[in-house]
């Protein structure tokens, strides 16, 4: 399993959600909230796949956040 931690000061929650929705068909994604982070766990058939999907998801979430002008 790979765990991604998106800091609330730097990522917009809706953008992380949108990225999770987009990549949900490629891996099992579970989410939870912590005080400072949105946390996404990526489970896939192989560690390399988890790595790749996690990386793409993170880039997508960053791209959306930048497009929307940062976190609220």
């Amino acid at each position: 399993m790979r765990e991604l931690r998106f800091h609330r000061d730097l990522y917009r929650g809706e953008c992380v959600d949108a990225a999770v929705q987009l990549y949900a068909r490629y891996a099992t994604l579970t989410t939870r909230e912590e005080d400072a982070h949105w946390v996404v766990c990526v489970e896939a058939s192989a560690p390399e796949r988890e790595e790749r999907i996690g990386n793409e998801l993170a880039n997508y979430a960053l791209g959306l956040t930048v497009r929307d002008g940062g976190p609220r």
Partner: peptide, 28 residues
């Protein structure tokens, strides 16, 4: 400023996977 962090990070997303964090209040 965080805008500079976004601006610079965004330039690299075609070549790299980029992740941001704030490990301490005064650190990006």
């Amino acid at each position: 400023p965080v805008e500079a962090l976004y601006g610079a990070a965004y330039v690299f997303i075609d070549r790299c996977y980029v992740l941001l964090d704030r490990p301490a209040p005064q650190k990006l």
